[in-house]
């Protein structure tokens, strides 16, 4: 008995220490974001006052500028491009990954490596040829152009990751359902897809984030009428100086959709990312 009390106390202290540590990390990470958030409504004059001014008269001037400068359309463009390319990736990539995992085909492993090879070249190396092709076929500065560009990038990543998820679905489950009389497409729909959901969601989210943050392709292949947020932000570096308040607003609004996606799908993402690690 006497030995168990200190042990319990020690455990308790461990929990407290760990919580403090986690809290410390979180605050350190969030502080710049919070500071950026205050910048959204900080008057220009107090922006870089020393010491930092925490109490000030909030202003909406930055918001007005951002709206006038058409950043809403950039937000929409980013959403459309990242959203549509991710949707296409899932639509095309899921059956492809399944086929690579399950079916015998001619030179399957070679083809699979070839798919991954599209990711091995540095993006800069591909952007010039892609630019020339796009210029020929009229895809420059179009939504479709960017969607296709991101599709080619994300598809290889998605297929590569999802294939191992597909392999983890025991083939006996599908055989059981086939024997019970379900046609193949229903087996896929009712058994395989539900089991793949964590894998699909987490790889789709990573694809989305990649497309959302991408700069080089968005800048080279879009940039005039089709302007995603990462491309739009540098326009706030003007001849009169950097518009920090506006940068903060755009930055925060670029963060929000990603946060929203991650939080709503958190359940699947955590399962998806740890699936390979904890085999059960």
């Amino acid at each position: 008995m006497s030995a168990s009390i200190p042990r319990a106390a020690r455990a308790q202290r461990g929990v407290v220490l760990f919580t403090l540590l986690a809290l410390g990390c979180t605050i350190t990470l969030l502080l710049p974001v919070a500071w950026m958030a205050t910048m959204m409504v900080k008057p220009e004059a107090e922006m870089f006052a020393r010491p930092t001014v925490w109490l000030f008269e909030p202003t909406l001037a930055h918001f007005e500028y951002v709206l006038e400068a058409g950043f809403l359309s950039s937000l929409a463009t980013s959403l459309v491009v990242a959203g549509a390319s991710t949707a296409l990736v899932v639509l095309i990539g899921t059956p492809a990954a399944y086929a690579f995992a399950r079916f015998e085909m001619w030179r399957r492993d070679d083809m699979f490596l070839f798919i991954l090879a599209t990711r091995m070249a540095p993006p800069v190396a591909l952007v010039i040829p892609l630019y020339l092709i796009y210029a020929k076929v009229g895809l420059l500065d179009t939504h479709l152009g960017l969607i296709l560009a991101y599709l080619t990038f994300n598809l290889s990543f998605y297929v590569w990751v999802l294939r191992s998820f597909c392999r983890d679905v025991p083939v006996e489950l599908e055989e059981a359902a086939l024997i019970e009389g379900y046609p193949r497409w229903q087996v896929l729909l009712k058994i395989t897809l539900p089991m793949l959901r964590p894998g699909i969601v987490s790889s789709a989210v990573l694809s989305f984030i990649f497309a959302w943050n991408e700069f080089l392709y968005a800048f080279m292949l879009g940039g005039r009428t089709v302007k995603t947020l990462p491309v739009a932000i540098p326009t706030l570096i003007t001849a009169q100086g950097v518009k920090w308040g506006e940068v903060a607003i755009v930055g925060i609004s670029a963060l929000l959709p990603v946060l929203l996606v991650v939080f709503t799908l958190q359940r699947y993402i955590v399962r998806g990312l740890t699936l390979g690690a904890v085999k059960g």
Partner: peptide, 20 residues
Amino acid sequence: LEPGERNLAMVFEDYALYPH
């Protein structure tokens, strides 16, 4: 005949239950 048309059932070593 397809597996489903043979009117048989199978019990597997690893149970093959649908986890969801």
